[in-house]
């Protein structure tokens, strides 16, 4: 039996925000996955940045996404400094309802051997330091 993939222990994960990125994390705290969409041309981008790279607009609509995702690529990481027995599946996620934007996250509670590119995912939220919630992904059922 292979160890199931987990996320890093929540108390070890620290994030910081800026005025540009804060709405993403504020929504995650409410268990909503959001992405910034340009208010002028509709282009999605992640991580959030202050200007639309396509039209240079600063207008942003924070769109609540379905939470569906798809594995674009992934790694299977064995061990982390101080946590040699940990198995992680860091994943680059395509977001079908935010085309062009990707999230770097984890697939959790899965045998790493079962993860494949193209696998359908659904978001979940994992408590981390300072009361934040981190979007992670599970295999879609």
């Amino acid at each position: 039996m292979t160890a199931l993939a987990t996320a890093l222990p929540g108390e070890k994960v620290h994030i910081t925000t800026s005025p540009t990125t804060e709405p993403f994390w504020a929504a995650a705290k409410e268990r909503r996955l959001v992405a910034p969409r340009c208010g002028r041309c509709g282009h999605f981008r992640l991580p959030p940045t202050p200007y639309c790279p396509d039209c240079q607009s600063r207008e942003v609509d924070w769109v609540t996404l379905s939470g569906r995702g798809e594995v674009y690529s992934f790694a299977v990481v064995h061990g982390f400094p101080g946590l040699p027995d940990l198995t992680l599946v860091p994943v680059v996620v395509d977001l079908p309802d935010a085309p062009g934007a990707r999230l770097v996250s984890n697939v959790v509670d899965i045998d790493p051997a079962e993860v494949t590119i193209g696998m359908a995912l659904t978001v979940d939220f994992h408590p981390i330091a300072d009361g934040w919630l981190l979007p992670v992904f599970r295999r879609a059922r």
Binding site: V13, H14, T17, P47, P81, P90, V104, N106
Partner: peptide
Amino acid sequence: FAQAKPDPINSFLQPSGLA
């Protein structure tokens, strides 16, 4: 990256454990 201080941009990368 495992020891790097979090900043608003690497907060979209570091939590994944890509060390």
